[in-house]
Computed example of a mutant assay.
Amino acid sequence: MPTHNEDIVLLAHGDGGRLTHELVTGLFLRHLGNRVLEAMTDAAAFPVGEGRMAVTTDSFVIDPPFFPGGDIGKLAVCGTVNDLAVSGAEPRYLTAAFLIEEGFPLADLERVVASMAAACRDAGIEIVAGDTKVVGRGHLDRIFINTTGVGVIPAGVDLGYHRISPGDRILVNGNLGDHGMAVLATREGFGFGDRLVSDCAALHRITGRLLAELEGVKLMRDLTRGGLATSAKEIATSSGVDLWLSETDIPVGAGVKGAAEMLGVDPLYLANEGKFLAVVAPGEAEKALALMRADELGRNARIIGEVKAGAGNVFLKTALGGTKYLDLLAGAPLPRIC
């Protein structure tokens, strides 16, 4: 059955005229409307409070745009919030720019925008500015979203490679690889059922609690593209120390573990969208672990390793008693996972 023009995004939706106005007011503002956005000015004006301001920007091109546990809209909000959160910032505002292929179903666009609105409500933030561009069929794949996030870093928060020292403990807030494997399974139609669900979630509340109650949080990183192994290597290289990780302490769910073994994929290199690594002073590691486990997003948190003097290497103590060297992700085994 042919698709009616009123059911899909047209090039005219991006030309700045009547259809653009209808799209902005009838769809975007209906879901995302707030005092700042509804002013419809060329630039949003808003308070940021005391402290240092943090700004991050990201683009989301995930394939497929809908997956178990989320979609490109939820991912765009949570991914941007998490970049602010692991930098020590309290997320306040987002902008969102939509690049849409002509022919994209309006029902799917509304589903994405509604998902973004729900994620913003859950995170307690607002989208205060946006843009929409429509391109011809075949010029991009369905829908891409670019976001910018603005947050405030409270006075006294100091995270960075310069603070890491031998003896510090390394923690993660839960099972690794859920997002990357869920997206891969959905894209390729592997049929793992509901065992593989993305961990897409906003982390600012759990990271904020750690920073509010502990002085020994040295660094945090969200474990997105390249997974735990790549992030650990980047941290080791930038701080000039070695990281020693324990394979038996690294949490990986049974579904991800089984699928990874079947497909020959290493879970330590799989992307995550609701997991972060924290480097914490040894005297506060156990308290940090307890704080993580008290949060819904940290129920399976673990201490997975230790910082030692070295020259920027990452070593994995394997379950068989050997030692494995971990390096940056090479190649792109999971393209377009965020």
Results as ranks from 00 to 15, higher is better:
residue 266 D to V: 07
residue 206 I to E: 08
residue 101 E to H: 12
residue 184 L to D: 12
residue 146 N to K: 15
residue 281 A to V: 06
residue 103 G to V: 08
residue 242 D to R: 08
residue 59 S to W: 06
residue 94 L to H: 09
residue 313 N to V: 00
residue 323 T to E: 15
residue 25 T to A: 13
residue 39 A to L: 12
residue 119 A to R: 04
residue 255 G to K: 07
residue 227 G to A: 07
residue 4 H to A: 08
residue 184 L to V: 11
residue 103 G to F: 12
residue 28 F to N: 04
residue 194 D to P: 03
residue 243 L to D: 07
residue 136 G to R: 15
residue 13 H to M: 00
residue 289 L to F: 13
residue 38 E to Q: 14
residue 209 R to N: 09
residue 103 G to Y: 13
residue 54 A to D: 05
residue 241 V to L: 14
residue 283 G to T: 02
residue 41 T to L: 09
residue 257 K to N: 02
residue 169 R to T: 01
residue 278 A to N: 12
residue 329 L to Q: 15
residue 114 A to V: 06
residue 301 A to D: 13
residue 263 L to E: 11
residue 267 P to K: 07
residue 75 L to Q: 10
residue 250 I to P: 05
residue 196 L to C: 09
residue 85 A to L: 01
residue 170 I to M: 06
residue 318 T to Y: 07
residue 322 G to C: 04
residue 226 G to C: 13
residue 214 L to H: 10
residue 38 E to L: 14
residue 80 T to F: 01
residue 278 A to W: 11
residue 8 I to H: 01
residue 197 V to A: 04
residue 307 V to Q: 03
residue 287 K to L: 13
residue 338 C to G: 13
residue 249 D to N: 12
residue 83 D to G: 13
residue 247 E to G: 00
residue 247 E to P: 00
residue 269 Y to G: 02
residue 202 A to H: 02
residue 128 V to D: 07
residue 136 G to P: 02
residue 140 L to S: 10
residue 300 N to V: 11
residue 119 A to H: 06
residue 114 A to E: 15
residue 79 G to F: 01
residue 79 G to H: 02
residue 244 W to T: 12
residue 249 D to Q: 13
residue 51 G to M: 04
residue 251 P to K: 03
residue 28 F to E: 01
residue 289 L to V: 09
residue 302 R to K: 12
residue 190 F to Q: 00
residue 145 I to R: 08
residue 176 L to P: 08
residue 91 P to V: 03
residue 122 D to F: 10
residue 59 S to R: 14
residue 173 N to I: 04
residue 237 T to H: 06
residue 100 I to Q: 01
residue 332 A to L: 08
residue 261 E to K: 09
residue 183 V to Y: 05
residue 269 Y to I: 03
residue 320 L to Y: 06
residue 37 L to M: 14
residue 142 R to H: 14
residue 79 G to C: 02
residue 109 L to M: 14
residue 181 M to F: 06
residue 329 L to Y: 06
residue 84 L to A: 02
residue 57 T to I: 10
residue 196 L to G: 10
residue 213 E to H: 08
residue 58 D to I: 00
residue 62 I to W: 09
residue 47 P to F: 08
residue 70 G to L: 05
residue 20 T to F: 15
residue 270 L to A: 15
residue 176 L to F: 08
residue 299 R to Y: 05
residue 160 G to H: 11
residue 246 S to F: 05
residue 37 L to T: 06
residue 1 M to K: 07
residue 220 M to Y: 09
residue 290 A to H: 14
residue 14 G to W: 05
residue 108 D to S: 13
residue 4 H to S: 07
residue 325 Y to C: 03
residue 335 P to E: 10
residue 236 A to W: 04
residue 211 L to E: 00
residue 293 R to L: 10
residue 263 L to Y: 11
residue 49 G to Y: 07
residue 269 Y to C: 03
residue 33 G to R: 13
residue 124 G to D: 02
residue 177 G to L: 03
residue 115 S to G: 15
residue 43 A to S: 14
residue 264 G to R: 09
residue 78 C to G: 00
residue 320 L to D: 15
residue 62 I to L: 13
residue 235 I to K: 00
residue 254 A to V: 11
residue 228 L to F: 12
residue 307 V to F: 03
residue 287 K to H: 13
residue 122 D to K: 15
residue 225 R to T: 07
residue 292 M to W: 02
residue 329 L to F: 04
residue 166 P to K: 01
